[in-house]
């Protein structure tokens, strides 16, 4: 059975599996709280993963890779913003187009770099830990991006609920007309939120190509962008529930492998289903009250803003 060693490994593996979901999810949460529904998360993650990998392979510096990934994700988001905010195109259609575009673009720019070996991001040891100890070596593979992902729920909550700009952002998401009448620039706020979402998605993608599996292959995000999107909606746009959903998904993803490796008498097909099943179940329970879900949803979500008066 599982001993303390294996339990610690399970915890670390859970955090690593949840990291891309946390990053992309909290980016999207901020965008949606500002009233913008960006379905292009998967595409932005892929472009971030490819760009981050290329920058790392070219410069040898994974930190530059992360920076490039965030910028690339933000650039994709800027494109989305131009279409939906400035030109007021349909957000759902543009988001889907952004994903399809991102899949193709990342495959195209990443093609010459397939199979290039890179040195991924170095891990950060807590001060005081003995780097030579096998326990520390084996399991304390925690890197700066993971710490950032773990801090994201706290930082985003503090921003949304404890700061004035956060209040303005939520107001824009609830009623852009009122926010506009009060003198706030709806477009500026929304651009900032969308760009933040793009940068976070890019980082989430780069986590996969620089840390989790240091390689670039086509379509390597493998649907995690869609999971992050679903988590945002099912968590009723609440940071706490979103963090819980991402960690739960990560945990069950890893737990299924542990169950398989322990030789438990469970069909592997059922195990594969488990993360989705568990996450849907928990989040349905959270959001079972339809009226509450409706009340929680940003009222202006997905609606284009036209300044009047």
């Amino acid at each position: 059975m599982l001993d303390g060693f294996a339990l610690l490994a399970l915890l670390v593996a859970t955090l690593r599996a949840a990291t891309p979901l946390l990053l992309a999810g909290f980016g999207e949460l901020v965008a949606e709280r500002a009233g913008v529904l960006n379905l292009g998360v998967e595409g932005m993650m892929l472009v971030g993963a490819a760009t981050g990998f290329i920058a790392t392979a070219a410069t040898g510096n994974p930190l530059l890779g992360l920076l490039a990934a965030a910028l690339a994700g933000a650039a994709m988001a800027l494109l989305f913003g131009l279409l939906t905010l400035t030109l007021r195109a349909n957000q759902v259609a543009c988001g889907l187009a952004l994903t399809i575009f991102g899949i193709g673009l990342s495959a195209l720019i990443g093609l010459p770099w397939q199979g290039t070996p890179i040195t991924g991001l170095a891990t950060v040891l807590w001060p005081g830990l003995d780097a030579a100890s096998p326990l520390v070596q084996q399991f304390m593979l925690l890197d700066p991006v993971l710490w950032l992902a773990l801090a994201a729920p706290l930082l985003v909550s503090a921003f949304l609920y404890r700061s004035r700009p956060g209040l303005v952002l939520r107001a824009v998401g609830e009623s852009h007309d009122v926010a506009h009448a009060l003198g706030y620039s709806v477009l500026r706020v929304r651009y900032a939120a969308v760009l933040f979402g793009g940068a976070m998605s890019g980082l989430g993608g780069a986590y996969l190509s620089l840390v989790y599996t240091p390689m670039w292959t086509e379509n390597m995000v493998a649907g995690r962008g869609w999971i992050a999107l679903a988590l945002v909606v099912f968590s009723a746009w609440k940071p706490g529930w979103l963090a819980l959903g991402a960690l739960l998904f990560g945990f069950v993803t890893i737990a299924q492998f542990h169950a398989g490796a322990l030789g438990l008498d469970i069909s592997p097909h059922l195990l594969t289903m488990l993360p989705y099943l568990a996450t849907v179940l928990v989040l349905v329970l959270i959001s079972r009250d339809a009226t509450r879900l409706k009340l929680n949803a940003p009222a202006a979500l997905g609606k284009p803003f036209t300044a009047t008066g």
Partner: peptide, 15 residues
């Protein structure tokens, strides 16, 4: 699926 393969490999080493 590199991500899943990686997680599975980590799990096996942990066990």
């Amino acid at each position: 699926d590199p991500g899943r393969e990686r997680a599975a490999a980590d799990t096996l080493v942990a066990q």
